[in-house]
């Protein structure tokens, strides 16, 4: 349904824009029908940049993003609106997604004005109520309030309800639960999974492996803008191949198993912009070739790809 083809994003930084900062580097992956894909990465991995590019909020420096076969950045005028009718996003900070000077339900009014100008008021109200109930909200409790009068969880559900008003096929969920409390977090996760079961595809961007594991069908692991490993979630979690994924799995805090106490590992000064593997500077099993050549993504078993010279 959605395909990224060798997408890169390079920002110009520093004096006169002479410096370059590679946020995303030659990323290719696909999101299929009725599928939750977890995009996993730490800060600086470029995961949010990918989400914003899919939502057409920032253009890629090179590469193409296709939705149902069409390059989304070649869309013009009406076609853009049609794209947003099918692809929507929800962001990390629920409070930042609302203009604080307006009531929170204004995001629905905006959808009505732009997408359903012909619909009658009672009809619209029914539709809105349906969408709010679908995300587990009681309309009278939440309508007509300002963002600061609602909780983070409610605001986040509002945004999902907003997307449901449209005929969406793909939802980009960028760290949408990292600012929620544990007790409400699971409910939002379950909601996403239910939506998937009803036919939606979801790109679930997260830094939290346990959350990714809980709901996703496939996982894509990013490090410094590159895909280091991807495949079915079950495979990756039961048998991580890339040393970075291994390290992530070993350091995620769990409540069923304690950390194995190795030496205390901290980042050392990263090796400067190298030609080789992005993980070279921290990799425990790196060899000389890793500093010279970027490892390509190679399929090691059906649907499981790894970018590592040592493990392929």
């Amino acid at each position: 349904m959605l395909a990224l083809e060798s997408v890169s994003k390079i920002y110009r930084v520093g004096v006169l824009g002479l410096g370059k900062l590679t946020a995303v580097s030659e990323v290719s992956f696909e999101i299929g029908e009725k599928e939750i894909v977890a995009l996993i990465g730490e800060s600086g991995s470029g995961k949010s940049t990918i989400g914003k590019m899919i939502l057409r909020l920032i253009p890629p420096t090179s590469g193409t993003i296709r939705f149902e076969g069409k390059d989304i950045f070649s869309l013009k005028g009406k076609a853009v609106k049609e794209y947003y009718r099918k692809v929507q996003g929800v962001f990390q900070d629920p409070f930042a997604s609302y203009n604080p000077i307006f009531k929170a339900d204004r995001i629905f009014t905006m959808i009505r004005e732009e997408f359903f100008p012909e619909i009658s008021r009672p009809q619209w109200e029914r539709k809105l109520e349906e969408a709010l109930r679908a995300v587990g909200l009681n309309p009278p409790d939440v309508l007509g309030k300002y963002p600061h009068q609602l909780s983070g969880g409610q605001l986040q559900r509002f945004l999902i309800a907003r997307a449901l008003l449209l005929d969406i096929r793909l939802l980009v969920a960028d760290e949408i639960i990292s600012m929620l409390d544990a007790s409400t977090r699971v409910d939002v996760l379950n909601l996403l999974a239910e939506l998937r079961d009803r036919g939606l595809s979801i790109l679930f961007i997260t830094h939290d492996l346990s959350l990714g594991h809980y709901i996703s069908d496939r996982s894509v692991v990013l490090y410094k803008g590159r895909i280091v490993e991807m495949g079915s979630t079950e495979r990756i979690y039961s048998r991580p191949l890339h040393p970075y994924t291994e390290m992530l799995m070993a350091s995620v805090p769990r409540i069923d198993q304690k950390w194995t106490h190795g030496e205390i590992r901290v980042e050392r000064n990263a090796v400067g912009p190298s030609l080789g593997c992005v993980y070279y500077g921290r990799c425990p099993i790196a060899q000389e070739i890793c500093a010279r050549r970027v490892p390509p993504l190679i399929e090691v078993e059906s649907g499981h790809q790894v970018a590592c010279h040592m493990r392929t």
């Binding site: 914003k52 939502l55 853009v80 609106k81 947003y84 930042a96 203009n99 000077i101 732009e114 997408f115």
Partner: peptide, 27 residues
């Protein structure tokens, strides 16, 4: 800001975004 992103994803034209999101925010 993200609420401007949200307005863009609602298919609003730039003109409308400036008038209904940005200008009111700095009224």
């Amino acid at each position: 800001r993200e609420f401007v992103d949200l307005a863009r994803m609602s298919g609003r034209s730039s003109m409308k975004i400036v008038l209904t999101e940005i200008a009111p925010s700095m009224m």
